[in-house]
Write a protein that binds this DNA or RNA. Structure first.
Lengths: 330, 330
DNA sequence: CAGAGATTTCGAACCGGTTCGATTATGGAG
DNA sequence: CTCCATAATCGAACCGGTTCGAAATCTCTG
């Protein structure tokens, strides 16, 4: 494999001249620049990433910390990941993916060893054990998901409180006065999925204020259980005419349940990604969770901080994207 | 951030002694070793990855090349990825994820710059443009998916031919004499998804030999279209009593279609992952595609080649895991 | 044509590890 | 007490880039 020394020798210049010719950080005579470029091309020169990282303290790699349990229905995960990796590549960065059962250790390793210039954390829990590590790291960090303590990192998330209110408002506006909210399964909450109760509490509060009855329950994340659960629920609450679904599995299961029972009067509002809605042809209005957009925002802000000392000095942001209702396909 | 020089100074030894004490590659007196270890601990020393890579020409990072189009229903993707990253971590490697619309360029960059010690390629197409690059790379490569030309890399895949035969045999054994095979959408085939026609051609051949009529069609990968398509298909082939599904979206959609039509006599065999079967509570027998296991196998073989010169000299393997029928949940 | 000033190039140091060969300290045998 | 083998340690070189300061070359002016 050719080194910059080989390129320099082939072009008849010193290593430093070759380096400057390639980087353009100093002016180099037209002839020398051309010879260096030709030599690099001819030798198939690619700079050694380790050596460059050592010299510049920049790796052009972002860490991506994601927690995904096999056997859990998490259709949004690939979209988050794709949003992050695609944006990173656009900005010239590669992505080191850490799927972490081992938690903080791996994070500390990749930051302290300087493998990455910054870290995006997905699936942030309310009391996330990796956040202290991330705050202590020399690199900047960006989160997708709102933790209890936002200090020291940039945070991006859907405004789940607003989502809860928007969803209640919608069904209230359609005249419904008794509603059911199906949230994520309880273990998601126990694991620190704050977005679940942010949406739920805001929805309950809004319902109370509007004088609407709202039954909030945990759903299931698997198919047969999800269907049974919905059926039982509709039986138990015959007066409920509106359904709020903050649970992908429930949303995917609902059409077959309602079809089987002929519950055509039921009004439904969901909360999931546009892609999910399309894949499962869901006929409901929904609040779009825009996972790819959130991943993109996190990366852009992260790279801004990495590349500009000025940006690094700016105060940390907490950006909640507004929850907007998307109409069902007609 | 502490360097090995700081550790050495704190322990009162030279840098080389500190290095040997930490790596154990030469014997070091008990006292010195202890002082070095304590100093490293106290200073929170973590070796700089770039420097180590430069010195050892080993990065302890694997490249993971995956192609996933947002908006395509590819539920197995996360399982492949998880199989790879989890196994890599077990073996001491991190994973650089490259989701590549830009194809060969990114691969060449990460291999030539020595960012990775080896590469796992998912979603291999029959005539994959990245394979020549991978073969030319100085690092070993492993594929999940069978390409037209297997030279220069280790290959792991499900035995899709056997899967086709097993599926036909099953329905033939149940007494069915006219079958329909729903494959992946045509664009998957056009993109070089050889596994589609490997399964289909083997199934057609087996059906011919058994004297069974088999109608092979391309399916849809999206929900509303998949359902309509299945309905139309069953109408068009009223004599068909058995269904082979090599298409996740079709499998997920089928229960609601058959329920709506009361087609209880229909026998179905699928081809998808166990996780998929469970998530959607599919009541069919199926050939398990074991994405996580394939990812794991690819990584293990890759790391073997990376770490042992002996293994590197071994001939390349093409390992097709047997297609076995899993019974439906009772 | 000398000299100032700008342009181009080079050599050396540095980033932070690893590793080889040599040197020093230690202990045992003669 | 000396000599030698062995164990422990050190210094220096190297991996492959980048970058700084100085030297060399060229250009233009007086």
């Amino acid at each position: 494999m050719a080194t910059i020394g080989d390129v320099a020798a082939a072009a008849g210049v010193s290593r430093s001249t070759a380096s400057y010719a390639l980087s353009g950080k100093r002016s180099i005579s037209e002839g020398a620049r051309r010879r260096v470029l030709e030599a690099a091309e001819a030798l198939g020169y690619t700079p050694n990433a380790g050596a460059r990282a050592l010299a510049t303290s920049q790796t052009m790699v972002l860490g991506l910390l994601a927690r995904f349990h096999a056997g859990e229905f998490a259709p949004a995960m690939t979209q988050y990941i794709l949003g992050v990796t695609d944006t990173a590549r656009d900005l010239g960065y590669d992505t080191l993916l850490v799927t972490e059962p081992d938690g903080a250790g791996a994070l500390r390793r990749i930051t302290d060893s300087r493998m990455v210039d910054g870290v995006v954390r997905l699936n942030v829990a309310h009391d996330d054990l990796r956040l202290p590590v991330l705050r202590a790291a020399p690199q900047p960090g960006a989160l997708v998901g709102l933790p209890g303590d936002c200090s020291g990192v940039d945070v991006f998330d859907l405004d789940f409180e607003q989502a809860g209110r928007v969803m209640v408002d919608r069904l209230h506006g359609l005249g419904h006065r008794e509603l059911i909210l199906v949230s994520q399964p309880e273990h998601v909450v126990e694991r620190g999925g704050a977005y679940v109760w942010r949406l739920r509490d805001a929805a309950l509060e809004r319902a109370r204020r509007l004088g609407v009855r709202l039954h909030a329950v945990y759903g299931e994340s698997r198919r047969p259980a999800a269907e049974r659960m919905l059926g039982a629920l509709l039986d138990a609450r015959p007066g409920a005419t509106g359904l709020l679904l903050d649970n992908e599995a429930a949303a995917a299961a609902l059409p077959s349940v309602t079809r089987a029972r002929g519950l055509e009067g039921l009004s439904v509002v969901g909360r999931y990604s546009a892609e999910f809605a399309e894949t499962f042809a869901l006929p409901y209005a929904y609040v779009e969770s825009a996972p790819d957009r959130l991943g993109e925002m996190a990366v852009r802000q992260l790279v801004r901080r990495i590349e500009s000392a000025r940006a690094r000095a700016e105060p940390f942001v907490v950006r909640l994207v507004p929850a907007e209702l998307t109409s069902p396909p007609s």
